[in-house]
Amino acid sequence: MTETFETIRYTADVVVTTTDGHVLLIERGWDPFAGRWALPGGHVDPGETSRAAAARELAEEAGVYAAPEELDQIGTFDRPDRDPRGRYVTVAYHLTVLPGTTVEAGDDATRAQWWPLSGLPPLAFDHADIIAALADTATGE
């Protein structure tokens, strides 16, 4: 019997919220989901923790700087079909900032902006589920 292994890619995403109910989203400048809004995030580099990758990606894509230890883990998202490019497992983190925190698109993001949690655009990947999981942890569900 031959064992089959699938390639699994490891990523990190960050839900950044303000104390007045907004979330930071970036507009993707590349496929998949070019032109769609998403959470800042990306691949975990060799020798890097997912928490460190989340902080790095947040700085690269949105110009928001946080120490890795400031990020609180929301959970792991590993549904097999969550990314059309193949199997991706992401660890999502949360950071709370003050309203008016400046954001600036960089790296692969074409725009970065604050959106009210009550009026989000259609999101790429399973990022709506990640934001919902944050809300569930906040309410103790």
Rank of each mutant, 00 (worst) to 15 (best):
L25T: 07
R36N: 10
H127A: 03
E61G: 08
D72V: 13
T17P: 12
E60H: 01
A54H: 01
R51V: 11
E6T: 15
D45I: 14
G21I: 13
L25C: 09
A34L: 07
R87W: 00
V91Y: 05
R82F: 04
S50E: 14
M1H: 14
W115D: 06
Y65C: 11
I74G: 08
R36D: 09
G106W: 02
H22K: 05
E27K: 04
T2D: 08
V97E: 12
P46N: 05
G100A: 08
T49Q: 06
I8Q: 06
M1T: 09
T19V: 06
T19H: 02
E61W: 02
A59K: 00
Y88H: 10
P32I: 14
L120S: 05
A124M: 01
D81A: 14
A67V: 14
A112K: 00
G140I: 06
A128H: 10
R79L: 08
P116T: 10
D136V: 03
P80W: 01
G41V: 03
F77W: 06
E69K: 03
D81Y: 03
D108W: 02
F5Y: 04
R9A: 08
E3G: 14
D78N: 14
E3Y: 12
Y65E: 14
A133D: 15
L123P: 04
T139F: 12
V16F: 01
P32V: 13
T7N: 04
R79N: 10
A34N: 09
F77D: 13
T18Q: 00
Q73D: 15
D13M: 04
R111G: 02
P122H: 05
D81V: 15
A59D: 13
D81N: 13
M1K: 13
I74Y: 04
P40L: 05
Y10A: 14
T110F: 01
M1F: 11
A124Q: 00
A67W: 08
T101L: 09
D83Q: 00
A105R: 00
A34S: 10
A38R: 01
Q73M: 12
Y93A: 09
Y65W: 08
E61R: 01
V64F: 01
Y65F: 13
M1R: 15
Q113L: 12
L39H: 04
D107G: 06
W30M: 13
E27V: 04
T11L: 06
A52V: 11
V44P: 06
A124K: 02
V64P: 09
T101K: 05
L95R: 02
L120F: 13
G35F: 09
L71G: 04
E141Q: 15
T11K: 05
A59C: 07
A138W: 11
W115F: 15
T90A: 07
R56E: 10
E6D: 12
T2M: 07
I74K: 01
D20P: 05
V15M: 11
T17A: 10
R87M: 08
F125G: 03
R87F: 02
R51F: 08
H22M: 12
F33K: 03
T17K: 03
A55G: 07
G75N: 09
E70N: 11
L117T: 03
T110P: 00
E69L: 11
P99Y: 08
Q113H: 09
E60M: 04
G35S: 02
Q113K: 12
E70G: 07
L134V: 06
L71E: 12
D126A: 06
G140Q: 11
E3R: 15
E61Q: 07
E104W: 12
E104Y: 12
Q73C: 10
